[in-house]
């Protein structure tokens, strides 16, 4: 069981300034949970920009290669057919399906990567600090160790503008 001090804010600006204040006091922040994406927060908390775009690009390349190879194999290599005297290697006719498969692979490749890195897997227990984080509260969690003075941490959190401070024990 890990122990956390959980602070709830009711405004994103207060949250941002609170984080700065806590960081200058040397408090380590576990994570922040917000009801909507708060821009600028990722820089404060030190989250790197997402590299899912690279994943999408790689999966897209895989998609276009698979589509091209599939069509080439089927109607050029495996069973060349004479359809109205048209060529057996019609690269221009390959374009629509190559495009669709690129989009399909890029979307699903990226989507699945997103679910996996985000641990969005069916049946997982959500690592919730406070249920109001998906409603109207901005929730900040600070890990507590045995040597921490809980009262001091609480006071610090309250000073930073939190409207509510509580303790939480969680398996995560």
């Amino acid at each position: 069981m890990n122990k956390y001090a959980v602070a709830l804010y009711d405004d994103e600006d207060v949250l941002k300034s609170g984080i700065k204040q806590l960081q200058s006091a040397g408090v380590k922040i576990h994570d922040v949970y917000t009801p909507y994406p708060v821009h600028g927060l990722e820089n404060l908390v030190g989250v790197r920009r997402s590299r899912l775009d690279i994943a999408a690009f790689c999966f897209g390349c895989l998609g276009v290669s698979c589509a091209f190879l599939m069509m080439w194999y089927m109607i050029t290599y495996d069973w060349p057919m004479d359809i109205g005297g048209k060529p057996n290697f019609p690269v221009i006719s390959f374009i629509p399906i190559c495009f669709e498969m690129t989009v399909l692979f890029a979307s699903y490749g990226m989507g699945l990567t997103f679910f996996i890195v985000n641990r969005n897997i069916p049946g997982t227990t959500p690592r919730i600090m406070d249920e109001r984080a998906t409603d109207d509260r901005f929730v900040l969690a600070v890990p507590l160790t045995a040597s921490d003075d809980q009262e001091a941490v609480n006071a610090l959190l309250r000073d930073s503008g939190a409207v509510e401070v509580k303790q939480k024990e969680a398996a995560y």
């Binding site: 994570d31 922040v32 949970y33 917000t34 009801p35 909507y36 994406p37 708060v38 927060l41 990722e42 908390v45 989250v47 920009r49 997402s50 899912l52 775009d53 999408a56 890029a106 979307s107 990226m110 989507g111 997103f114 679910f115 890195v117 985000n118 641990r119 969005n120 897997i121 069916p122 049946g123 997982t124 227990t125 959500p126 690592r127 919730i128 600090m129 984080a133 998906t134």
Partner: peptide, 23 residues
Amino acid sequence: FFSLGWTGSVRSWVRFEAVCLIL
């Protein structure tokens, strides 16, 4: 079950926005 354990953490929002934009 269908929320797939969404929490709204900073990291997940950053990824969420990236995914939505690329999609």
